[in-house]
Design a binder for these strands. Structure first.
Lengths: 208, 208
DNA sequence: CTGAAACATGAATCAGTATTCATGTTTGAC
DNA sequence: GTCAAACATGAATACTGATTCATGTTTCAG
């Protein structure tokens, strides 16, 4: 994982649903947090508004004060995941000049993040079916930042020459597969070991 | 992608729904094919039984002669994808003794398969949410075959030593990411180019 | 203090759709 | 040819769950 572009606090959500008082703010966040947990655990379709609001400790109708639709809360979670992940990786790699080292640190940060937020991870995966546009945006944004990092590293002679676009996708694929090991397959292997093996593969390949 | 274990034509489906005549056989297959297309396109939840049966050209009730549940037809599609993909790769790599070459040929075969069956590809992804057991089975089976291939190659000195389990997951992750490029992101890049870049990464890594 | 805007409630609405079933039609073994 | 088993039909059932709404309650600017 590399150094994706940092990012501003991003746009205001769509419609007329932003809270105007501290109480509203708190309620909205409670619903969002509950949605993350419930949707992450049960999946989009089995997570009913009732489940979400009861987990949040509010009445069902309250949901529609802050969100116009079940899909909207989902999309917002996908966006949040994107922001958080990019921020996490950017922070973990900001002081590292060498690309290969940055790759290693970024991968570690990503896996730690995923382990800490398993629900968000699953939500992004499900976005392919629930909100394809958000899914594409998530990966495209990520890939672009990644790719430009590789281009710079290539120019600086820190990595060999190659097709940076395909490399970016492949490296993201590795990160994703290892994240899935942790979250979906509940692997017990320590993150440090995963990172070490993946790093060796990324740096040296597997030829004898 | 490597040489997964081959496989027998696999078990009889669960309950009492196997056709007993040629007509029944044909109808069942028509429904299965329609389900593949419709579910692949609309996703599990938006694909109603009505959509599927009308695409298949049969009445709604006919569905329940051959499948006990909407989920069952989905699971069957996931299993089918597993069989097909393993078979395809096994065939593409059976005459190749060198592991790195097998890796290349297997990846190419996988990508060609995925491009030819985009619906099946999406169905497997959605299985994580619709039928997690089938999803796990799909990837576990695949990973085991993959890993044992790597172990053999390592023993034969065809690849460097390393953590074969993590390597297997990482390599599968690369294949998956590139497949997604084709199916989800509609990349125009020729498969040959994707394979060449990925092969270079897998064999040599990216260090300068 | 006060009243209008914000916020909260939860029961009712309303639509979609998986599954069942009573009723035909077709097939193939004998 | 015949008839029981297979197969097919599509309307009816049954249930789930997103969204709305009429009715309170709380907040806070002035």
């Amino acid at each position: 994982m590399g150094k994706p572009a940092a990012e501003a606090q991003t746009a205001q959500k769509s419609a007329s649903n932003q809270p105007k008082t501290a109480r509203g703010e708190a309620t909205r966040k409670a619903i969002l947090t509950a949605a993350e947990r419930v949707i992450g655990e049960k999946g989009y379709n089995d997570a009913s508004i009732g489940h979400i609001t009861s987990e949040a400790g509010v009445a069902q109708g309250t949901f529609y004060i802050y969100f116009t639709t079940k899909e909207q809360v989902f999309s917002e979670l996908v966006l949040e995941m994107g922001r958080l992940v990019r921020h996490t990786i950017a922070e973990a790699t900001q002081d590292i000049d060498n690309r290969l080292e940055a790759e290693e640190a970024g991968l570690r940060a990503f896996l730690e993040f995923v382990q800490a937020h398993p629900d968000l991870y699953r939500i992004v995966q499900e976005a392919l079916f629930v909100d394809p546009a958000a899914y594409e945006e998530y990966y495209r944004t990520f890939a672009e930042g990644y790719r430009s990092g590789l281009v710079a590293a290539e120019a600086a002679g820190q990595i060999s020459k190659g097709d940076t676009e395909t490399r970016a996708w492949a490296l993201m694929g590795i990160a994703r597969a290892l994240g899935e090991q942790l979250v979906v397959f509940k692997s017990e292997k320590p993150i440090a070991d995963l990172v070490a093996s993946a790093y060796d593969l990324i740096a040296n390949g597997i030829k004898p």
